[in-house]
Amino acid sequence: MNQPPDPNLNSSEVNEEPLTDDPALVNFLQRYQPAVPEPSPGLEDQILHAVLDEVTQSTAALPSGSQRQTSVEQDGWKVARWGIPAAIAATFILFWGGSQIWRMAKQPVPLDSDLEAFVAESWSGAFDPFNDVEADLLTDPLEWWGQQPPPAVIAEANTDMCKRSSPCHE
């Protein structure tokens, strides 16, 4: 028997007629090949009808009236399902936002002159501790000790204050 042909050969490398021709087997196969039953009498018309059905189905692309109505009903149900909660939420947000704006608008606005006086007082207090009431309180020995301190402590404190503020009146 012949060697099997190389499966990877392409058309330019192989002759059209098979190298492994087997006329005896081929003749036998052709002579006794399975009988082909005759087609049923109406097969041709049946196929043509199937083809015509394909044609009519492809041309009838638009939806029918009932299909359109069903689609509208489905759309209406979707609107009812999602639209009502969304509308309620939007109303609530609008009401709450409006009330917040109203409250902010009602708050009293300080006058410009009052603001200026406040800023000036805070500013001078921050940089002039000896004119500041709070600073004086902190440097008052009575505030520190809660009772009359010993004379030596008062004298020492006065000395320190004289050093920090000139001229000293001691």
Binding site: N2, P4, P5, D6, P7, N8, L9, N10, S11, E13, V14, E16, P18, L19, T20, D22, L25, V26, L29, Q30, Q33
Partner: peptide
Amino acid sequence: DLQDVPQQEIAEMFEIPIGTVKSRLYHAR
């Protein structure tokens, strides 16, 4: 072998090399 379809046409049909057609034919026979 039964329908006399040329090997080249079978190769195009199945998108395989003609060598594969020959090989299958050989083993089938």
